[in-house]
Design a protein around this nucleic acid. Structure first.
Length: 473
RNA sequence: GGUCUAUUGGUCAAGUGGUUAAGACGUCACCCUCUCAAGGUGGAAUCACGGGUUCAACUCCCGUAUAGACUACCA
């Protein structure tokens, strides 16, 4: 069997939304499942949209996610170059070839004429299709215009009748009438190829066996197929992916503030967890497994089980998965994950590393993403404590001041360790007779101001002896 | 407007003619517990609608509704 080759072909716009990443993931998994090759190709044929460093951004994201590119701009390969902007002569050559074969033609129609056509079409409430005006220009006319440097595009001469169909590996049989397809532009007037054209040429030349992409191309794939037919090339298999949308069914978009991979990453989500979540959007394993390493994904992935309906991005489930990953991290790893957020928010200059590690340790199980630490630990960085109404009410009960007095005496002379604090609490229980809620809550409220928080001995330890004694008096 | 596609609980989803319609997130209750998490147990909640086909339809067919995509010298 032919070895599978898939490709991720983003345009370098400097932004990687979750749908893009998921496409890359599935492309990678489909290839790796069969020991195939995963290719990165940069589709930079729109000069207006190029963003500096966007390619670095894309490759950084992929490697952060453990998606390894076999062939691409950074690592090269025998089918390069992998920037479309460096393949211009290739597209020109193939476009000319099509012209010579009589399957494409020069079109000199300008914006104005096209605009008129469009207006007329919208007036008549019909779909606008280029009318093929230049399709039958005589050789002399063409030569003359070319000699005069009249701007031109190259359009494909599409068949006027018949049906073009294919079998998508996810969506099944798709058929579209050729009459609905216009004579598509292959080469733009700036000499650059259109996406459609470059895409087909490169997929063919790079030997792509499975084209995996978003389903916005589902209904335009016949246009691509017609190009393969014109060249007499065999077309690849198609796997169209359902979209990832936000609540309400709208597309995820940067402009509307929807989270991109980098946004999540910067909030302390783990790339592994993001990938894990994304894998479960539009795909499901044969069993009920939820947590996957990349290796397990590769082994278990099966494109036959890709869903064909759109999935709504749900940050709650992502948080759960991310939390599962955080629980499995070593303390050093959580420390690394969370430290930047702490440093940026709180003054840690007079805290020991041990103190910070202890702080992080007791909150490891509470975290669903890194940035969450900031809010969770705020109680240890406040000079003033504010006692809630509920807590004030609780403190009105009998015997509480006595309990607090006993506890204060208990800790006055101990060495400040979690264990000793715990013993002091137990001694207080013995001596005062208070137990359960009436034992713990008063101390908790008096020292932290809150009725919630981590285990009391640990909380007190982190607060420090001086602060605790001060708040008790 | 035309074309293509989709529709199982709030969300992700399993399911391919006969099932008590899995599982997960979320939610609620209970257990654990000083509290909050974590963990455990349990509950509520789903086949868009209408016609067919069939002994039998979530599953097949046709409509309708709703949603999305495409309809660029953007990718």
């Amino acid at each position: 069997m032919e070895k599978i080759r898939t490709r991720f072909a983003p345009s370098p716009t400097g932004y990687m939304h979750l749908g893009n990443l998921r496409s890359a993931l599935f492309e990678y998994l489909i290839a790796k499942k069969e020991n195939g090759t995963f290719i990165l190709r940069i589709e930079d044929t729109d000069q207006k949209r190029i963003v500096d460093d966007a390619v670095k951004f894309i490759t950084d994201t992929l490697s952060l996610c453990d998606i390894h590119v076999d062939e691409g701009p950074m690592q090269g390969g025998e089918y390069g170059p992998y920037y479309q902007s460096e393949r211009l002569d290739i597209y020109q050559k193939y476009a000319k070839q099509l012209v010579d074969m009589g399957k494409a033609y020069y079109c000199f129609c300008d914006e104005e004429r096209l605009e008129e056509l469009r207006e007329e079409a919208s007036l008549r409430k019909v779909a606008f299709l280029y009318d093929g005006h230049c399709r039958n220009l005589s050789k002399e006319e063409i030569l003359e215009k070319l000699a005069n440097h009249t701007p031109y595009v190259i359009r494909q001469a599409m068949p006027k009748d018949g049906i073009t169909s294919y079998d998508d590996l996810v969506y099944g049989h798709i058929a579209v009438e050729n009459a609905l397809l216009e004579d598509q532009i292959l080469i733009k007037s700036d000499g650059y190829p259109t996406y459609n054209f470059a895409n087909v040429i490169d997929d063919h030349l790079m030997n792509i066996t499975h084209v995996v992409r978003g389903n916005e191309y589902l209904s335009s794939t016949p246009k691509y197929l017609l190009l393969y037919q014109a060249f007499n090339w065999t077309s690849p298999e198609y796997i169209h992916l359902p979209h990832i949308v936000k609540e309400g069914g709208k597309k995820l978009s940067k402009r509307e503030g929807d989270a991109s991979f980098m946004d999540l990453y910067n909030d302390g989500y783990l790339p592994n967890a993001i990938i894990n979540y994304l894998a479960l959007l539009g795909w499901s394993p044969i069993n009920n497994q939820e947590i996957f390493t990349m290796q397990e994904l590769i082994e278990n992935f099966d494109y036959h089980r890709i869903n064909n309906s759109p999935a709504i991005y749900d940050v709650k489930k992502l948080q759960w998965i991310n939390g599962q990953y955080i629980k499995k991290l070593s303390l050093d790893e959580v420390y690394k994950l969370v430290m930047p957020f702490l440093e940026n928010t709180y003054d840690l200059s007079n805290k020991s590393k041990e103190w910070v590690r202890e702080l992080i340790r007791i909150y490891q199980n509470h975290l669903s993403y890194g940035r969450e630490i900031v809010e969770l630990v705020s109680l240890f960085f406040q000079d003033e404590i504010i006692i809630s109404d509920e807590a004030v009410e609780f403190m009105k009960q009998d015997g509480i001041s006595h309990t607090l007095e006993v506890f204060k005496n208990q800790i006055e002379n101990i060495t400040w360790t979690v264990e000793n604090i715990n013993q002091a609490i137990l001694n207080t229980k013995e001596e005062s007779g208070a137990k359960g809620k009436l034992l713990y809550m008063p101390i908790r409220i008096k020292t932290t101001g809150q009725m919630h928080g981590p285990e009391l001995p640990e909380a007190l330890f982190l607060l420090g002896k001086d602060a605790v004694l001060k708040r008790l008096s």
